[in-house]
Simulated assay, not measured.
Amino acid sequence: MNDRMTTPWGELEPTRFPEDPRERLRAWDASDEYLLRYLADEEVSLDGTVVVLGDRWGALVTALAAHRPVQITDSHLTREATRANLARARADAAATLLTTQDPPPERIDVLLVRVPKSLALLEDQLLRLAPAVHADTVVVGAGMVKEIHTSTLKLFERILGPTRTSLAEKKARLIFCAPDPRRPRGTNPWPHSYRLPKDVGPVSGRTVVNHAGVFCAERLDIGTRFFLRHLPAGGGARRVVDLGCGNGVVGTAVALADPGAEVLFVDESFQAVASAEATYKASGAPGHAEFRVGDALEGVPDGSVDLVLNNPPFHSHQATTDATAWRMFTGARRALAPGGELWVVGNRHLGYHVKLRRLFGNSQVIAGDPKFVVLRAVRE
């Protein structure tokens, strides 16, 4: 596989984060190349404030480093990949890295958008950025054909202005939007809150807060519902981690059931951690909690945790992969004290019991139904 990206501004060697020599997925795709080629061919002026929203692994920001772009991302892994790729290109200080929770720039002259998987996240971010966009702002979106839908185009049109698409090249497509600052946009519906059903343990009837882009932000997903019904009994664990916390409903359930527990909420999504903190505060949980954006259990001391609860994702952007789950499991084994437990919920077909048995030397089925299984592994 060619690991060099050819751009109008030279060749790059962007990588994903964390870097893995066995990784077969590239840190860019045809839509990144299409977007950069368009900017060069059309001689788009990049002299003002250039904002890159949703850059997957920092390839766009690194390619445009000479123009000191502003990156806005929801992903800790993307931000770390961007830092590494900028350093590799010797452009460490050539970009401003913001999260989706940070205040955006006051003026945007060029807005480049890598279309995210979540339409809700796109809506939230376009609404947040719209006040900074003016009539002369160049707005160009990019994505693979399978990522761009009629609903995507309607969102650009409703929030920013008239929108059209390019022809497809190498299964990639561009979105062109002509901003109309006079366009009424309405209020931002995010974050979204809802009440939990009455049959999910300590959090029954409690309010869940979801920022845009968080998994199942408009309702409780069936996997989490199943997990909530089969959590370990409280009282024994003192240091608990809700790993890949999402909106934080699992860790909040533990905090409500065992006020003496110290709960650490961890996710690589800035939107998720903000949601978890809001959910926890809305619940009125009496215990101590910490909220951290990071890569799995990186930075958590060895042997310092009694219980890890995990509903691992099996997608990274559009790619299906077990790499994230494996990092979570290995991190949990390192962070757990002897006798500490990892509890995992997942689809049956993912075969997590095999990975856990290989890593921990044991794996026990706590509960199961035709679709999901809850597994327990003990650090011996």
Rank of each mutant, 00 (worst) to 15 (best):
A285F: 07
V308R: 02
L98C: 10
R292Q: 05
P14V: 10
K371P: 03
N347L: 14
A285I: 10
A337C: 07
N85Y: 01
A178D: 14
D221Q: 12
V365W: 03
D3P: 00
T152L: 08
R229H: 02
A261R: 04
R107T: 15
H211E: 12
R173S: 13
V240R: 05
R182V: 07
R16D: 09
L126M: 08
R164H: 12
H134A: 15
R107Q: 14
S363L: 00
N347F: 14
L307F: 04
L356S: 01
R164S: 13
G213P: 04
G340A: 04
L127A: 00
D258V: 07
H288P: 07
G284H: 12
L126G: 06
L35Q: 01
V138I: 14
V263G: 07
R68M: 09
T252V: 06
T152K: 02
K170T: 03
A332L: 09
V138N: 05
L336V: 06
E341Y: 03
V61G: 05
H315I: 02
P197M: 08
V374R: 01
D47M: 03
T163D: 09
A285L: 07
D180Q: 10
D199C: 08
G10I: 11
K170F: 03
F17P: 04
L231A: 12
C245I: 05
P301M: 12
D92E: 15
T321D: 13
A89T: 11
A87E: 15
R357Y: 00
A289T: 09
R327D: 05
R37F: 03
G339A: 10
A132W: 03
T187N: 00
E80W: 11
R185Y: 05
A285C: 08
R37K: 10
K146E: 11
I366G: 01
Q71V: 09
V293R: 03
R379N: 15
G186C: 12
D102N: 06
A40M: 04
M5S: 01
L126A: 08
A27E: 01
H192G: 00
A130K: 02
G223D: 08
R24P: 00
Q71F: 10
